[in-house]
Design a protein around this nucleic acid. Sequence first.
DNA 1: CGTGGCGTTGACGTCCGCGTCAAGGTCTAG
DNA 2: CTAGACCTTGACGCGGACGTCAACGCCACG
Lengths: 131, 131
Amino acid sequence: MRIGELAERAGVSTRALRHYEALGLLPAQRRANGYRTYGEEDLRAVTEIRTLVGLGLSLEETRPFVECLRAGRPSGGSCADSIAVYRRKLAEVDASLARLGAVRAELEAQLHAALRERAPEPRCELTVEEA
Amino acid sequence: MRIGELAERAGVSTRALRHYEALGLLPAQRRANGYRTYGEEDLRAVTEIRTLVGLGLSLEETRPFVECLRAGRPSGGSCADSIAVYRRKLAEVDASLARLGAVRAELEAQLHAALRERAPEPRCELTVEEA
DNA sequence: CGTGGCGTTGACGTCCGCGTCAAGGTCTAG
DNA sequence: CTAGACCTTGACGCGGACGTCAACGCCACG
């Protein structure tokens, strides 16, 4: 299939596919006229990339997965390098969650402080908004 | 005080201060020789900016806060616009937390699936890593 | 034959918060 | 007088994942 069909079936732009090729993530066969040609395995590679990017991985981080697929493995996550990326990303997500939780608490505290400052002496407790 | 002193006291670069001025966040007085001059209130403004940016606000989003300060309010968060930004940001953070929680679960599920795939028939339960 | 729909490469634009020169002006101490 | 520590504006760079031209080639259909 040509690039337009792959793009449509994968739900990405042709520009994105060329970008992946430029990064070496998605090498393409060429016809005599210079057109790129793709197979079903390329569709699966692109699907894998989009799934992982959706989970917050960078394109570089998806490399072990697509290489794992090209090595003939049924799943892109079943190679050692991929698993290492999973672990690393999980740790990063945990760190982000912790930081974001602290930020949330601080934002809420600041918001409540600001609300108290604007209504120094509430006439009635029921008028104080809780968040 | 001149820009170098403000930068050092606020813990930011002079380049950052000029950037804030270019955005209209930190207008500066000028001496006859063209040098920028700042007062203590500018230090407070920069401190406010850095605090808010540390909570994940963009520079644009800090604008209501610094304007609130310049309006003479003791706290940058005590104006209606600032409070609106607080609320909006809090909602964004909640959304991020929810998304990140789902991503975390998915990452962990994928990791476990990959581990099972690599060790289809564990000889002993103790050899299965839990995370 | 020509038109329209595909494809190609190359290169600049976007967003953000500055970093990092470059090329100069200003002020102070020795 | 001069070194050097400060200041000025202007402009390009970065990272990431492409978007968006521009200018061209290829091919099937009528």
